[in-house]
Design a binder for these strands. Structure first.
Lengths: 341, 341
DNA sequence: TAAGAGATCCAAAGCGCTTTGGGAAACGAG
DNA sequence: CTCGTTTCCCAAAGCGCTTTGGATCTCTTA
């Protein structure tokens, strides 16, 4: 940049201002500077500008790593969406996979090191200490999802209407006459899973159907868990006539279990699932004419993109509180039918 | 740090040296400094040290985004592994999902901006311009996989023995008497997919089995593609008696297609797949006593971890060329049986 | 025409570290 | 005791930008 300013006969001040779009520079010189920069293939040093300006143009994503180093597969699609939004604003994404018990320290370090301008809070739990921590640290953040007392607190988040989604899914089944309905859910200390359970429960209640403890399963949302939960449910003395899954991966495990047990879908049992529109489960053209499963769907890639955009706004207007809830879409497939009972 | 050095009655030089483990500091003062730093909860500013030292302690991961914004699901596990290795060395991970046609510019910018100390090259193709580009840019890198003329070039990489893996898988089938074997592969402009095909082909050749063009399918490794490819294969006039898949996701699609078509596995058809040990397809306890599919398996999480470690070494010894090949493990399951023909 | 307002630009002071090039004290050898 | 070494520490000069606080010049307005 020094050589650039000398070559142009301008001060570094002016060059910097011209390139960063400050108004104290005439249009003519700005253009001149920009052209020279282009010609010299000049790229400002990100670190130097970070140091001088006190902002890094980097967003931190702390990925909580569960016990078995499992990482939620939904992240990859979410991150690709967020990354798009950041790129459009000239921001970058810093990733750290962190064991659960080190999370707090990592946030503290990140804040004190000034490594990032803001962070995204992933996987909020019902009891979520990170919100208070981040507010204490003064580190801007946005939550993907909500935590416990979401309605009372005044923080920014992007969430999906999980309650509504599961109500829709469950109601679809009760409307078809089902009453013995099982729920295969994620870990219910997570707010989203708690919400999904609540949506399920309220729709059951509306239909006057009983909640049976035996029909409620919950664990990490893996395909094998979907399989084993379904396997167990089908083996009950009085198996459910329908199952609601909280994720496509578990539903796939469910399909596998049903087919292995010789149980026909939807003749013998109806299946419906929440669907994050994970890219690796989608048809190449995205349409999925073969759509077999009945789903309630909301693209997690889009969620990432939207959250990224919101965070960019939050950074320019730190005082604003941004809250948004995405509405999933119900798509009837061929995996649900009238209850035969 | 200024206040710290004043408080201690030492120069900033000494404090910096003490904390960074330089030898020109007596053990006594070093301890004194470290204790004071601990007490003051001091964390050096990462950006300032980056600027001064000319290294950022950040590794760049450029994730190529295919046409439909699909991101390879294997990344999440790979990244979590790499992240662990980085964290252990005090490094961070910068992520950018980039459309294919912008890749080169991104590498150039990253290098000129000094945003990262090194990068990881993902998804090398047979014809891979990035190696030459990065060498030209002088940006240290390591490749996950190999590119076209791997044997001639002198770059660092971590790869899996894809040829051997597929030979093993295919041989298992030919040993069981199968001759009409299909391959459902990834996109074959990618080196790893080309290798898998080659392994398949050579094992077929060894057994004197013919390669039939109709039996060779290749596309993005999604579950739906596994489904449709298998569906089509089963509908052929002369369907294969066995199928080899290049990924677990496609194999799952294959299982779905078979079960829907009423084709019994392994009675009517044998299935075997390459398996990246994706966390969300694993049992909670990782053992998988229900292991149904016969697989050739190599953990992609471990690959990430190992590659991260190698890259750390590469950074401290830039002159070294590190090359490593992981050997997958064959695990017999219940999805393969003797050919009935 | 003088004075205030605007528009452009600049010199220089950082941002918070690392690193160079000594300097002073302690130690050993001759 | 003197001189060369070694050990330990320091002052100050950056790293490559941004930003403050004017300075200069042109344009209005009374």
């Amino acid at each position: 940049m020094k050589s650039l300013s000398q070559q142009l006969g301008l001060s570094q001040t002016t060059v910097s201002r011209a390139l960063n779009g400050f108004p104290e520079v005439s249009e003519r010189t700005r253009r001149r500077v920009q052209e020279a920069a282009q010609a010299a293939n000049y790229r400002p040093s990100a670190i130097a500008s970070s140091l001088a300006a006190g902002r890094t143009r980097v967003i931190g994503h702390i990925i909580p790593m569960a016990q078995h180093r499992m990482i939620n597969p939904h992240f990859s699609d979410f991150l690709s969406g967020a990354s798009e939004a950041y790129a459009a604003a000239g921001y970058d994404m810093l990733l750290r996979a962190v064991p659960l018990d080190e999370e707090e320290q990592v946030y503290r370090d990140l804040a004190r090191q000034h490594r990032v301008d803001a962070v995204v809070v992933h996987g909020p739990k019902l009891d979520e200490p990170r919100i208070a921590l981040l507010e204490e640290l003064g580190l801007p953040f946005i939550v993907h999802g909500r935590c416990g007392e979401a309605e009372r607190k005044n923080y920014s988040y992007l969430d999906v209407d999980n309650v509504g989604a599961m109500q829709t899914a469950t109601r679809h089944l009760t409307n078809l006459g089902h009453r013995r309905i099982a729920l295969v859910n994620g870990l219910e200390d997570m707010r989203f899973a708690a919400d999904r359970r609540q949506g399920f429960a309220s729709a059951m209640d509306d239909a006057g159907a009983a909640l049976e403890a035996n029909y409620m399963r919950s664990a990490d949302m893996t395909e094998p868990f979907g399989y084993s939960a379904t396997h167990d449910l089908l083996a009950l003395d009085e198996p459910p006539t329908a199952i609601v899954y909280a994720s496509m991966l578990m539903a796939m495990g469910g399909l596998r279990a049903a087919s292995q047990a010789g149980v026909k879908v939807p003749d013998d049992i109806s299946l419906v699932t929440y669907d994050d529109a994970l890219s690796f489960l989608e048809d190449e053209d995205g349409t999925g004419d073969e759509r077999f499963l009945t789903v309630v769907r909301s693209s997690i890639h889009e969620a990432g993109e939207m959250l990224g955009t919101m965070l960019m706004e939050k950074i320019t207007h730190p005082d604003r509180t941004l809250q948004h809830i995405m509405e999933p879409q119900f798509i009837a497939g061929a995996s649900t039918a009238e209850s035969s009972q």
